[in-house]
């Protein structure tokens, strides 16, 4: 927004100043604070999903027998089962991460792409 404390002009002047300010601030915010926020949100979504699936807990307890069975046969089965789970859950987490990353890339590219394509297609209006 324009300087709120020193401006003396009327609405027209204010709007011009706002426009000028936004032309600079829009991309600056999008690739600055906005990008940081989007990255944080994407990271927390992926880590939250991983936490929900408990991938970290399964890795931490890789050699801890499941269901309180401490005999050697159960230990072997347990390690195997945990590996399968870690792979499966890791795979799901990876898929989610790829999708979220795609959305993030879309966020990053959206203003530039839309601007470039809008200009590109605008040429068709002049061609008409």
């Amino acid at each position: 927004m324009v300087d709120m404390q020193g401006s003396q002009g009327g609405y027209a002047g204010g709007m011009l100043r706002e426009l000028g300010s936004d032309i600079l601030r829009f991309p600056a915010w999008w690739y600055g604070a906005g990008l940081l926020r989007a990255a944080t949100y994407a990271m927390s979504f992926i880590t939250g999903y991983a936490r929900r699936l408990g991938v970290g807990v399964w890795i931490q307890n890789l050699f801890v027998p499941m269901f309180g069975r401490y005999d050697w046969q159960s230990r072997i089965i347990s390690v195997f089962m945990r590996l399968v789970n870690i792979l499966g859950r890791g795979f799901v987490t990876a898929i989610v991460a790829v999708v979220v990353l795609g959305v993030f890339v879309a966020y990053v590219s959206l203003p530039v792409v839309s601007m470039v394509l809008a200009v590109y297609h605008a040429t068709s209006i002049f061609a008409l």
Binding site: F26, W30, S114, H121
Partner: peptide, 20 residues
Amino acid sequence: PHAALFAFWFGVLSACFAWY
């Protein structure tokens, strides 16, 4: 290039601006 897609991409850009 044609006008419909200009409207589409201009709309996307406007939405980005409104969000900002």
